[in-house]
Amino acid sequence: MLDLGPQTREVKALLDGIGDDQLAAPTPCEAYSVGDVLSHLLGLSLAFTDAAKKNLGASTDQNPDGGLPPLPEDWRRRLPAQLDELAAAWRSESAWEGETQAGGVTLPGDLAGVVALNEVLLHGWDLARATGQDYRGDAASLEASIGMLSQADSMEMRGTIFGPVVDVPGHAPPLDRAVALSGRSPDWSPASR
């Protein structure tokens, strides 16, 4: 079992640093603006909370390619609460056992937990980069993310969920390695797009 709490807290710490004037700004996740990443985090935090609780239904059935709803006005209140609920749900041993569903895909609970963690880690990095904020990866979170992303080719995720691996030096920090394995450039900045 992994604790999603350290990474969800890191993402929550970014939220006060995001101005309304930044919501339309680009992010390293090419198809998403800052507002889109926030909307995606709202959706995935709910879906993966339900996946942990095995409350399968509308939230866990929805394919992420189905489009994003508009960012609600109360996102600053809702997202921190949903991130807390996400971390709490994955503290239960039963979340990591058996099968569950997320994004319309049935998968083992232990893999779903790592996918949830990876989503929070990477989209937090997207927000930090796009809004000029510092961001850290929790050591255990980074290890799990790198492990999963290193196997993306064998899990047929490369090209559908993740882009081609970006080359980084062997001595690159773990966060840079995770970002690069996801298909993002660790040196991305709004000016470089």
Rank of each mutant, 00 (worst) to 15 (best):
A47H: 03
D138P: 11
L2K: 07
S185D: 15
A191Y: 05
D21F: 10
L175G: 03
G109N: 01
D167N: 10
V115I: 15
R184H: 09
L56Y: 02
R158D: 00
D16W: 05
L149A: 08
C29Y: 05
C29L: 02
S192F: 03
K53A: 13
D84T: 09
T160L: 08
L15Y: 03
A58H: 09
S141T: 15
A152E: 04
L175S: 01
G5T: 10
W96G: 04
A172R: 06
G159P: 01
I146S: 04
N118V: 12
S150F: 06
D74Y: 00
D176W: 04
L127S: 07
P173C: 11
Q7T: 12
A116I: 06
L44Q: 14
E85C: 03
M148K: 09
L175I: 00
D153F: 13
Q22R: 15
P28E: 02
A87F: 05
G17A: 10
L44G: 11
A52W: 08
P28H: 01
T106F: 10
L4W: 07
A87S: 09
D110P: 00
D61N: 10
L175D: 01
E119P: 07
L121S: 05
L111T: 11
M148V: 06
H123F: 10
Q7A: 02
K54E: 11
N118H: 09
K53E: 13
A180Y: 07
L111R: 14
L38Q: 01
L79A: 05
P26H: 06
D167M: 07
L175C: 02
A24R: 13
R193V: 12
F48A: 08
G109K: 08
A144C: 05
L86V: 03
V115T: 07
D167G: 04
L2M: 14
P69Q: 11
S150G: 15
S154A: 13
R77M: 07
E119N: 14
P174E: 10
G137T: 05
A87N: 04
A139Q: 12
A144H: 08
D126F: 05
A144K: 08
W125M: 01
D61G: 07
A191P: 00
D138G: 12
P72T: 06
S33I: 00
F162R: 05
V168S: 00
V11E: 09
W75Q: 06
L86R: 09
D65T: 14
A47V: 04
Q62W: 07
G35H: 02
R91E: 13
P173W: 06
R177Y: 03
V120M: 11
L79M: 04
D153E: 15
P70I: 12
A24L: 08
S39H: 01
T60W: 12
